[in-house]
Design a protein around this nucleic acid. Structure first.
Length: 105
DNA sequence: CACCGATGTCCAA
DNA sequence: TTGGACATCGGTG
């Protein structure tokens, strides 16, 4: 069962609209956590994959970061594909349009 | 209680 | 500009 912190992270992640991406830092800042890693940890566990669009969360530098507990390989490729399907284009493993970054209310 | 983890930022070369 | 090391928060062993 997810902890209070995880529920917070999942709630924030769910807030990300389709076709838009957020960063671990933004999520952490939004929930009031100074540790971006804790956010990634919570997403990594991701008990509800379709419910929590963890693929919409990338690193602050525009990299994909990780996916399904992997920081490279087909997992990242799938993440890029999912984002591309939503209109978010990636170039060479990097976000092509930083304006696609979602800004929390 | 101690170590690891889907990061970020700073310092040095 | 690129690479390496440290800092920070939470989870799990």
């Amino acid at each position: 069962m997810p902890t209070s912190f995880q529920q917070l992270v999942y709630a924030a992640t769910r807030t990300i609209p389709r076709g838009r991406v957020a960063t671990y830092k933004l999520l952490a800042d939004h929930i009031g956590c100074r540790s971006c890693r804790a956010v990634g940890q919570a997403l990594k566990r991701n008990p509800d994959a379709p419910r929590v669009p963890c693929h919409r969360v990338i690193a602050s530098d525009g990299t994909l970061g990780g996916f399904q507990g992997r920081c490279a390989g087909a997992a990242l490729r799938r993440k890029t594909y999912l984002l591309a399907a939503e209109g978010v284009r990636f170039s060479h493993g990097r976000l092509a349009d930083p304006r696609r970054l979602f800004r929390f209310a």
